[in-house]
């Protein structure tokens, strides 16, 4: 038996909304330690990795008697989650050898309980091992700032060059009709931690990435006030949105490299 009671259905809604356009079908891997999801986009350029820990406060109850994989169409899951109120408590439930995933939405005052079942899918996908590595540069910034940068620069070109150096981080685009550059300096004087830009730098990095994917990742902006960008030369960038009381959602994007 698998049963996970999440206090805020809005968190699950936001996660699925941010994934469903790039990742059509995905396996939720459930174990006693929590729920993980790893998936590649159809072009195999981007990868997402979601971790929701069972021992965090976002789950009111969590039970997973044996490891199970729940293959779900994320578009369908998004439709089901639209049936939940933002303040509803959502319970996910499945048997040990499941064909069906059940969603139960309880309204805050318990006057309305709704239940939906969806059929599970067999999804043949290979899990990739993501090594724990030290990155040359980690930028922490407000998530809405990153969203704005990606959105602004995507009007002029297809790829952004991210340049991390000791003064801060530069985002540059050069297209056929024009070019643009946004410089972010490290901030030390800002009161609120979530408004700060910090750059942890071991080595400078200059790397180009497709804006189409970065813009898609920023659909996760509402999950977190801050976003962390981890970069090393000639390796995928990690765009991480921490999810309070649950874990995190990470996106990996392969770089564009001179051939």
């Amino acid at each position: 038996m698998f049963e996970a009671k999440m206090l805020q259905s809005s968190v699950l809604k936001k996660i699925i909304e941010s994934l469903k356009d790039l990742f059509a079908d995905a396996n939720f891997d459930c174990s006693s330690s929590g729920i993980t999801l790893q998936d590649m986009d159809s072009s195999h350029v981007a990868l997402c990795y979601l971790k929701l820990r069972s021992d965090e406060e976002g789950f009111e109850d969590y039970r997973c008697d044996r490891n199970i994989t729940l293959g779900v169409n994320l578009g369908l899951m998004s439709k089901i989650l639209k049936c939940a109120g933002n303040d509803d408590v959502v319970t996910l439930r499945a048997e040990d050898e499941p064909n069906i995933l059940t969603f139960i939405f309880d309204s805050k005052n318990s006057e309305r309980v709704s239940k939906y079942d969806i059929k599970l899918m067999e999804i043949d996908s290979e899990l990739l091992g993501i090594p724990d590595t030290d990155y040359s540069c980690v930028v922490k910034m407000p998530s809405h700032e990153f969203q704005r940068i990606c959105s602004n620069l995507s009007q002029l070109g297809d790829s952004v060059t991210i340049d991390c150096h000791k003064e801060g981080v530069d985002f540059k685009v050069a297209g056929e009709q024009g070019s643009g550059a946004i410089k972010l300096k490290q901030t030390t004087s800002v009161d609120k931690e979530e408004d700060q830009v910090t750059v942890q730098l071991n080595e400078p990095v200059t790397q180009s990435f497709a804006l189409k994917f970065l813009c898609a990742f920023t659909k996760a902006t509402s999950l977190s006030d801050t976003v962390n960008l981890s970069l090393t030369q000639d390796t995928p960038v990690v765009v991480e949105y921490p999810i309070a009381q649950h874990g995190y959602l990470r996106f990996y994007l392969a770089p564009k490299i001179e051939e």
Partner: peptide
């Protein structure tokens, strides 16, 4: 020539 890399060329199958 700038080429888009694949994510699978960086991470191995687990």
């Amino acid at each position: 020539m700038i080429g888009q890399q694949k994510i699978s060329s960086f991470f191995r199958v687990a």
